[in-house]
Computed example of a mutant assay.
Amino acid sequence: MTTKTKVSANIEPLSTRQQIIEYSADMLRANGFEGFSYLDISRHLSITKASVHHHFPKKVDLGLALCDWTQAWLEQGLSHIDAKASSNWNKLERYIRAALKHSLNEQKLCPISAFYSDLNKLPESIKERVKALDDYELDWVTRVMQSGIENNEFSENQDARALASLFIFSCKGALYHARLHGKDLFQQTMKQFEHLIKPSTL
């Protein structure tokens, strides 16, 4: 007697809650937090609005879940850069390439920047989480800058946190303009930043 064994792919389908979060994350990065509704979610996922409300009674609840999603997104991306980069400048290069890919190739904003587009409308609980996300990203870039200064990759006598802020502001600001003016402007901006922080002898 021959017994046939069914092979399972062992891939768990996303729960309804996770599907809502994943679709909302796409909408957040494309349209901002105020740029999509529970009706949009229900239509896209072919579920009722009542089902969306079951998982997230108010949009603030969904917003906080999106902050959790963004935290995981940041941790995964920055950990990957830490693991793969060959130098501190290479970490910044990888950050720049990822930002360029998301913003110009995929036409999606960084989720932190996407929240900022609706900052004056966000509940305080979400604002607090967005600030914490900002701090997490800034802390990572600050560590990269400090390590680069200590290892003589970057010019000495510079404030690592101030450099980190300037880097993030330059990168994200240039990305906004690049969506209209093209990626050459973005690349010129980041090349200028490279000249700013690297020793002139390199």
Rank of each mutant, 00 (worst) to 15 (best):
Q187S: 05
Q19I: 09
S86F: 02
F36D: 12
K58E: 07
S37G: 13
H177M: 12
R97W: 10
L62S: 06
W89C: 11
H181D: 10
G35F: 07
Y176N: 12
E12P: 04
I20V: 05
E137W: 07
A83T: 05
F167V: 00
A98K: 05
T3P: 14
K108A: 14
N105W: 13
L14G: 04
L196W: 08
R179Q: 02
A99P: 00
I112H: 06
M190K: 08
D135M: 12
A9C: 10
L202G: 13
H177T: 13
V60A: 01
V144R: 14
A72S: 02
S103L: 12
F167Q: 00
L92N: 02
A164M: 11
K172H: 05
H181E: 04
W69L: 06
I149D: 01
Q187D: 11
R161Y: 04
K4C: 06
V7Y: 03
Y176G: 02
Q107Y: 02
Q187A: 14
S165H: 01
K59T: 12
A25T: 05
Y38E: 04
T16G: 00
S79Q: 12
T3A: 14
N152A: 07
G77H: 13
R179F: 15
A114S: 08
K108T: 15
L62D: 08
E194R: 13
G173D: 03
V130N: 13
S87P: 15
H102G: 03
V144A: 14
R129I: 14
K198N: 03
Y136M: 08
N151F: 06
S8I: 09
A98R: 08
H54K: 01
L66N: 12
L138I: 01
S117H: 03
Y23N: 02
A160F: 09
T5A: 15
A72T: 08
H55L: 02
A162Y: 01
I81E: 11
D40G: 07
K191R: 02
H177I: 06
Q187K: 10
A30H: 10
K131C: 06
L78N: 03
E194K: 10
T5P: 00
I20C: 06
S103D: 03
W140F: 08
N90V: 15
C110H: 06
G77N: 05
D26K: 10
R43D: 01
T2D: 00
E128N: 07
H177A: 12
E93H: 08
P111H: 02
Y95F: 15
W69G: 10
I168W: 14
C171L: 14
R17C: 09
H181A: 15
D40F: 13
I81S: 02
S24F: 07
K198E: 13
N152T: 11
A99N: 04
H80S: 09
W69M: 12
G77M: 10
L66P: 01
K4D: 02
L138S: 02
K183D: 14
V60Y: 01
T201N: 05
S87F: 13
S103A: 07
S113N: 11
C171T: 15
V7C: 07
M145D: 13
Y38N: 06
N10I: 15
L92C: 05
P123L: 04
R94F: 00
S51P: 10
F193N: 01
S103W: 14
W73T: 14
S51Y: 07
A83R: 09
H54V: 10
S8R: 00
E150N: 00
Q18M: 11
N157F: 15
V144C: 02
L138T: 05
L78T: 00
L104R: 08
Y176H: 04
A99I: 09
